[in-house]
């Protein structure tokens, strides 16, 4: 019997939900895939088929939340009339909102990432593809609509925003204020900074400064240390390509 794509997706979400609940109860280390399968009402081979390891399950959870957040944004009336800052801020707030009921679970993951090193941050990077793409699209639209000018490091910005987002999650986990009001304010104010940066030309000035140092000082030191004429020529040629496109 062929299982339809949507039925598969349903099973996947079902397993994830059961697994998160179990991890909240017993802790990540103590919850086994076997127990998760039982809690989700699926067979052992099935759960391994979906998630070969507990880590995979964790990544899948993060990806699922990114997907849900994106769907939530798409459902907002008039989302296209939001400013870039409002769009980005809504993305961050929506993700946190989705994490809320699984907060204990997120706390455990964060603990593994930031404290026990049970999980490496860079492994999380593999899960951010949809998030980064969403931010990238928001940026592109804002640039195209003339809301902001094309910023330097344009390609890197969505990934940087993901790093910022991880910082927000880390802050939220430690936030003990009523209804996490401090996090709300932290997001609002930091988004204010991000907005100001994107609307100013500070980023391009910084890039100019960096380029000046690179050309004037770094380049000459490379020249000093390079004795072979040929190699230098190659480097110069390469740099020329980089600098002048």
């Amino acid at each position: 019997m062929k299982i339809s794509q949507s039925a598969k997706e349903k099973t996947r979400i079902n397993i994830l939900g059961a697994a998160v609940d179990l991890i909240i109860q017993k802790g990540f280390e103590n919850a086994s895939l076997r127990e998760m399968a039982k809690a989700a009402g699926v067979s052992n081979p099935t759960i391994y088929n979906y998630f070969p390891s507990k880590e995979k399950l964790l990544y899948a959870y993060i990806e699922l939340k990114h997907q849900e957040a994106r769907e939530a944004l798409e459902a907002i009336d008039g989302f296209e009339t939001f400013t870039l800052r409002e769009q980005l801020q809504t993305l961050v707030e929506t993700e946190l909102e989705l994490y809320l009921e699984d907060r204990e679970f997120i706390v455990q993951i964060a603990d593994m990432v930031f404290r026990s090193s049970g999980l490496r941050v860079d492994t999380l990077y593999a899960t951010n593809e949809l998030f980064v793409r969403t931010v990238d699209e928001m940026l592109s639209i804002a640039i195209e609509a003339g809301e902001i000018k094309e910023p330097p490091f344009r390609e890197q910005l969505p990934r940087l925003f993901w790093d910022y987002y991880i910082m927000v999650v880390a802050y939220w986990i430690k936030d003990e204020s009523e209804a996490f009001e401090n996090t709300t304010q932290f997001i609002d104010h930091s988004m204010g900074v991000i907005e100001a940066l994107l609307h100013s030309d500070i980023l391009s000035r910084v890039s100019d400064l960096g380029m000046f140092f690179f050309k004037t000082h770094l380049l000459s030191s490379i020249q000093k240390f390079t004795t072979q004429k040929e190699k230098l020529g190659v480097i110069k040629c390469k740099l020329g390509e980089v600098l002048h496109g």
Binding site: A75, I76, R85, E86, Q87, Q89, T90, E93, E97, D188
Partner: peptide, 19 residues
């Protein structure tokens, strides 16, 4: 309050998004 915050506050206080 920008749109992101307005949405958030309504959801937080009343349990559902404005829309």
């Amino acid at each position: 309050l920008n749109k992101a915050l307005v949405r958030k506050i309504v959801k937080q206080e009343l349990g559902r998004y404005p829309n």
